[in-house]
Computed example of a mutant assay.
Amino acid sequence: MTLEILTPEKKLYSGEVYGVQLPGIDGLFEVLDRHAPIVSALTKGNLKVLNSKTSSSNYTIQGGFVEVINNKATVLVEGAVAL
């Protein structure tokens, strides 16, 4: 699955990933390879990029939206900091 994390200022992440865990407004959820199309609002919290089954990286986000379509997840956030 391809993941892009974008802020108004820059592209924070772009690449192939195993999955991503996101802080949705109704709770934490996970998107994996070949997920069904979805659009969801995000709240501030921790976004976890699952680079593989054994490694990950984390970002603190301020809120935004995620769109998943055609095995690509695009995360649009107001602000984010890599941890």
Rank of each mutant, 00 (worst) to 15 (best):
T60K: 08
V17W: 04
R34L: 15
A36W: 04
I25C: 06
K10I: 11
L3T: 01
P37K: 08
N51S: 13
A36S: 15
E78K: 09
P37E: 10
G45Y: 05
K53A: 15
E9N: 08
I38R: 03
S56F: 13
S56I: 03
D33L: 13
V17I: 15
K53S: 14
E78N: 11
R34G: 12
D26L: 15
K44L: 11
S55D: 14
M1A: 14
G27P: 13
Y59F: 15
Q21R: 13
V20R: 00
L22I: 10
V49E: 00
T43R: 09
V17E: 03
A80H: 04
G64N: 03
D33R: 14
S40M: 10
V81H: 03
D33Y: 11
L28Q: 11
G24E: 08
G24H: 05
G45A: 10
K10Y: 04
G79M: 05
D33Q: 14
E16H: 08
A41N: 09
V20I: 14
N51F: 08
E9H: 07
S40D: 07
F65V: 11
E67L: 11
L22S: 02
T43W: 02
K10E: 12
N58P: 02
L42N: 05
G79A: 14
E67F: 05
N51D: 11
S56Y: 08
G63P: 08
V49A: 01
M1H: 10
Q21K: 12
F29V: 15
A73M: 05
V68W: 02
A82Q: 09
L50Q: 01
G19A: 10
A36E: 09
D26F: 13
G19I: 06
L12I: 12
V49T: 00
Q62E: 12
N58H: 07
S52Q: 10
S40Y: 02
L3I: 03
K72P: 13
V17Y: 05
A80G: 10
S40T: 10
L6C: 06
I38T: 10
V75G: 00
A73G: 06
T2R: 08
T7A: 07
Q21W: 05
I25V: 15
I5N: 00
G19E: 02
L12C: 07
N58L: 13
